[in-house]
C-alpha cells in the first residue's frame, strides 16, 4: 500500500518546532503508520539528493518551519515546493518571520558585525568572519550559503497552501492540522490549520472576569507584579496580546499567569498584526491628556519587539525602511 509521503524541513528557526513535532510523543507512532516521512533533517538520515530524485509532486505535504534567510533555505523550499502537492508553513517563523524576523530592523552588515565582533560574549581577536567561498589548505573549495539582506516569510518565497500557527505549534494543534491534511477534506487554500478563527479571549478561562469596560491606567511588565491568576491579566495592566491573537493554543501561557505574547499570529481580517495590536492596546490606555498618554505608553520599552515579536517580515513594511529598500 502506498502511504502518503511527508517532508519536514527547517529554515531560520530555533529548533523549537522540531521539539513540538517530537512532543507528539506516542502519536509519532500513529503518524508513521499513516505516512512515510521522506525528509526530516533533524531526525532522519535522508540527504537532499534523495529529495532531488523524487518525482515532482510526489510528496503529499511538506511542513516547513523557519523564515527564509539563507540561499540554502531558498533552494530547499523551492525544491520542496516542486516535489510537493501541498506546502505548509509550520510555526510562526515560517508563517510570518517569527522572532528571527525582528532582525529586519537591522542590515545584514550590522548583524554580522555584531554577531562576529561586537556581542559581549564573542571572543574573536583574529576578526574572523564567514566567507561565501574559501579555498582550504588542502586545495578544496569550501562554500557557505549566502545570508540574504533580509528575512522573508515562506509565502513570499514559494506558494504556500496552509499555515500552522504557534511558536511552536502545540502538539495538539500539530496533530489536528495533520489530521486535516490527511483527511482529504481540505479547507480553502491559505487557511490556518489546527487553530480557531476567533481570538484567544474566546478560549481564555479569564475572559469572563473582565469588567464591562476594559481600560487600564498603567502598564506592568510580568516581572513587576505577581499577577492574580484568577483575573484577566490585561485588566491587571499586563500587556496581554490575547485579544489580537488567534486562539487555539488552549491559553497555556495564561494558565501559567503569563500574558499572551501573540505567537498564534493575527486573525484573517487583520492586515498588520503589530499595527492592529498597537491600535487595540493604545486604545485602552485610560487617559485623555497627551502627556499622561505618552508617559504610560512610554513604559512599553520596545514596541517593535512586543507588537511585532512574531510577524515583522509579514507586516506591511516588512522591516526597517533602509533594510527593505534596494
Amino acid at each position: 500500500m502506498n502511504k502518503p509521503k511527508i517532508a519536514l524541513y527547517w529554515c531560520a528557526s530555533c529548533g523549537g518546532c522540531e521539539e513540538a513535532q517530537v512532543d507528539l510523543a506516542e502519536k509519532i507512532l500513529d503518524l508513521v503508520n499513516l505516512v512515510d516521512i521522506v525528509f526530516w533533517p533533524v531526525a532522519m538520515d535522508y540527504k537532499l539528493e534523495d529529495v532531488e530524485k523524487l518525482p515532482d509532486g510526489s510528496i503529499t505535504a511538506s511542513l516547513i518551519n523557519g523564515g527564509i534567510r539563507l540561499s540554502e533555505h531558498e533552494y530547499v523550499v523551492k525544491l520542496l515546493r516542486k516535489k510537493s502537492k501541498l506546502v505548509v508553513a509550520y510555526g510562526a517563523c515560517s508563517a510570518w518571520g517569527g522572532v528571527p524576523g525582528l532582525a529586519n530592523l537591522y542590515s545584514r552588515e550590522e548583524i554580522l558585525k555584531y554577531v562576529y565582533h561586537e556581542a559581549p560574549t564573542v571572543e574573536n581577536p583574529q576578526k574572523i568572519q564567514p566567507q561565501l567561498k574559501i579555498k582550504a589548505e588542502e586545495g578544496a573549495t569550501l562554500e557557505l550559503p549566502e545570508v540574504f539582506p533580509r528575512l522573508l516569510p515562506l509565502d513570499l518565497v514559494v506558494d504556500v497552501d496552509y499555515y500552522i500557527p504557534g511558536c511552536p505549534p502545540t502538539p495538539d494543534v500539530t496533530w489536528k492540522a495533520i489530521e486535516t491534511l490527511l483527511s482529504g477534506n481540505l479547507p480553502a487554500k491559505g487557511s490556518v490549520l489546527g487553530a480557531l478563527d476567533k481570538s484567544l479571549c474566546y478560549d481564555c478561562p479569564l475572559n469572563e472576569t473582565k469588567p464591562e469596560k476594559v481600560l487600564i491606567k498603567d502598564i506592568k511588565r510580568p516581572h513587576e507584579v505577581i499577577a492574580d491568576p484568577s483575573k484577566c491579566l490585561l485588566t491587571q495592566g499586563l500587556m496581554c496580546l490575547g485579544p489580537v491573537t488567534r486562539g487555539g493554543c488552549g491559553a497555556l501561557c495564561i494558565k501559567a499567569a503569563m500574558p499572551c505574547t501573540g505567537c498564534f499570529g493575527p486573525l484573517n481580517e487583520v492586515m498588520d498584526y503589530g499595527g492592529k495590536a498597537a491600535s487595540y492596546f493604545a486604545s485602552i490606555i485610560d487617559y485623555s491628556d497627551e502627556e499622561e498618554i505618552k508617559k504610560v505608553l512610554g513604559k512599553i520599552l520596545d514596541p517593535m519587539g512586543i507588537f511585532y515579536r512574531y510577524s515583522l517580515p509579514a507586516s506591511r513594511l516588512r522591516g526597517k525602511i533602509t533594510v527593505m529598500r534596494r
Binding site: 499595527g275 492596546f281 486604545s283 490606555i285 497627551e290 498618554i293 505618552k294 517593535m304 513594511l317
Partner: peptide
C-alpha cells in the same frame, strides 16, 4: 479623537523604528 491620540502616539514611536 482622544482614542486617535492614544493610537497615533504609539504608532509614531513604531514608525520611527521602521526608519520613517
Amino acid at each position: 479623537n482622544i482614542k486617535t491620540l492614544r493610537r497615533m502616539t504609539l504608532l509614531k514611536r513604531m514608525l520611527e523604528e521602521f526608519g520613517i
